[in-house]
Design a protein around this nucleic acid. Structure first.
Lengths: 149, 149
DNA sequence: GTACATGGTGTGTCTTGCTCACGGTGTACT
DNA sequence: AGTACACCGTGAGCAAGACACACCATGTAC
């Protein structure tokens, strides 16, 4: 069994989950990026500056503006002025947005339980250990590339 | 340890590998989709109809046209008439494309070895077993959604 | 030989994501 | 004070990935 095929499985797993999520989102009228923004706000549990949102989502401030534009137009979230910093804009979920985000988070957890809920503790630990070592190997690879450039 | 967090790790792993691949591709002047097409042709080992390429890449025929347009313009691949079916167009790698594809495949294998190469057979089997069960659970979920719609 | 299926493409749209430049605002240091 | 600088969001413009619909040329089956 080549390491190659293990990597294939990881991608297959991520792809399938991604596909499923994508299709459930479409029913809600949400795209992956917009849903990500809602979930980020949900997880934060408070209003975020657009800048903060961009940091969490790992995208540029410019893109956050566009994202929030749509979320606001469709009633998922709203902008408000920052109380003390007049440069900043706060983004908060509307009731509708909060409900959708909570539901999506719950669905994600259900899916995770369906996939990994019936594992023994041993199996889970073994799986995570392998994943962690792989991530560490990856990090090493990335650093090598960074220093050699 | 919640199943939730296991899913997070899978995504993290896939994301990191994806990021690394993306950056190596950019140095070559390739985008993910175009590189995918080259690798698909490489793996097939023969010229493919555009339709076949679309099936492998899981995208629409229209998108294949656009993809091949660019690959052809940039000298990675070339079109030729199908010898017997005059509707069909065959896509084949140029020498340059074949070389790049082979190199990318080798790099991918190297990365996989860095991540999973030092596992014992037991660890690898355990990991794969978990992944397979998760995939199976996913499939069940997807079917449920399909029948209930 | 007619009806239908298949293969590729023109046109148009949407989403994600980037850069660059800019105006308004905070902050720190003279 | 005032000046320099950093930070926040946004206007404008662009590239990539991907979809649907309509269309024409070609194969195929009846």
């Amino acid at each position: 069994m080549e390491p190659d095929l293990v990597l294939d499985k990881v991608f297959e797993l991520a792809d399938r989950v991604g596909d499923l999520m994508h299709s459930t989102l479409k029913e809600r009228g949400l795209t992956p990026a917009r849903a990500g923004a809602l979930l980020a706000l949900h997880k934060a549990g408070r209003a975020l500056r657009q800048r903060e949102l961009g940091d969490v989502l790992r995208c540029t401030p410019r893109h956050v503006t566009a994202l929030v534009d749509v979320l606001e137009a469709q009633g998922w979230a709203g902008r408000s002025a920052h109380p003390t910093d007049r440069r900043a804009t706060l983004v908060a979920l509307t009731d509708r947005g909060a409900e959708a985000a909570a539901q999506m988070a719950a669905e994600r957890q259900d899916a995770a339980r369906t996939m990994f809920g019936d594992l023994t503790e041993e199996e889970r630990d073994g799986f995570l250990a392998v994943a962690r070592r792989a991530l560490h190997g990856m990090a090493t690879l990335s650093e090598d590339r960074a220093t050699s450039s």
